Amino acid sequence: MAKLRPGLLFAAAGCGAIILIALLGPALFAGPANHVELDQRLLPPSALHWFGTDDVGRDLFVRIVFGARVSLLAALSTIAIGLTGGMLIGGFAGLVGGWVESALMRMIDAILSVPSLIVALALAAALGPNLRNAVLAIGLLSIPVYARVARAEALAIVGRDYVKAARLMGASNLHQIRANLLPNMLPPLLVYATGNVGAALLATASLSFIGLGAQPPTSEWGAMISASRSFLFSHWWYSFFPGAAITVTVSLFTLLGDALRDLLDPRERPR
């Protein structure tokens, strides 16, 4: 059995803490995220307001806690869209093979040749500036990446004896995907997806920052940084704490994905 590494334990504990904050934080910390107190505007961090207040007097700590749920849910939604679509396309291509696989993979390569963020910007702008459309745009554009990984996993699984035996017994492609491919493809793809949570969060925050994602007064971390641009040099805490929340979360999920990959990769295990 592979030995758990300190980096994996640290990343898992950190990611678990962030998920708990996203789930339980709004219930544990009093005060709505959009409670306005104009006489408390732009106050620095203190015992009363741990992260200070914004330009309309809202408590930044409360907004960041509430924003954890919004930002994480948006990132996980993009992962779910990309993972589901990629597994279906890549798994089917790897199972069927032949000209179907070649056609699907050439289409995937053509999509990947275009910078995804630029396409996401255009798609989000065309659909309309809100968080749901930003999540949909990023999720759809992540499907090709997961499809390539799923195809590689499918090709390895298709060569196994039990899959060949099921095919000789007349199992349909749908049965093969449901019974043999998906159960065996899912664990490595989930590990890969875990490492991409940070990138997905950063992408949704970027669209919110330029006004194509979450709209005010939603307490989403990228939108909070966008609102703080005019106060970047005069009131440092306004942009610092939402930026720190994004940085810490992205780093922890990336570290967790790398640690899980190393743990499950047989080439990294001691002989």
Rank of each mutant, 00 (worst) to 15 (best):
S208H: 14
E101W: 02
G97K: 12
G195V: 09
A110Y: 06
L168Q: 09
S239G: 15
P183I: 00
L260Y: 08
S142V: 00
A80R: 08
A244V: 09
A30Q: 14
S219K: 08
A17P: 03
S219C: 07
V65E: 08
M224G: 09
A147H: 12
A125S: 15
A74M: 02
P26S: 02
V191L: 13
I111Y: 10
S239D: 10
N34K: 01
P266G: 07
A200T: 00
L252V: 02
G91C: 04
L28A: 14
D265L: 04
G91Y: 09
V145P: 01
M105D: 07
L207C: 10
L141N: 12
G91F: 05
P144N: 06
L20Q: 02
M1D: 13
L174N: 03
Y192H: 14
A171Y: 06
P242C: 05
P6V: 02
H235L: 06
A223T: 01
V36H: 03
G67M: 12
A22Q: 13
P188F: 03
E268K: 13
A199E: 11
L127G: 13
L155Q: 12
R267F: 01
N34Q: 09
L255P: 04
L190Y: 04
P44Y: 09
S206C: 04
L141C: 11
E220T: 04
V145M: 06
N133T: 07
I225F: 01
Y192E: 10
A74D: 02
P217Y: 14
P187T: 05
L127Y: 07
L202G: 06
R267G: 08
S142E: 14
D54P: 05
M107Y: 12
A200M: 13
L83C: 06
G90C: 04
L20R: 02
A12C: 04
P242H: 05
M105G: 01
A103T: 14
L117K: 05
L202Q: 10
G82I: 13
F240A: 14
L141K: 10
P217S: 12
N133H: 15
A27G: 03
L9V: 15
A223M: 14
A13H: 00
P266E: 05
G16N: 08
S77P: 03
V100A: 15
R261A: 06
R261H: 08
I118Q: 06
A75R: 03
Q40W: 11
D39E: 09
G57Q: 11
V135T: 08
V145F: 09
L207N: 13
L20T: 09
D258G: 00
S206Q: 04
A22Y: 11
L73V: 04
S234H: 10
Q40T: 03
G7D: 08
M224K: 10
H49M: 05
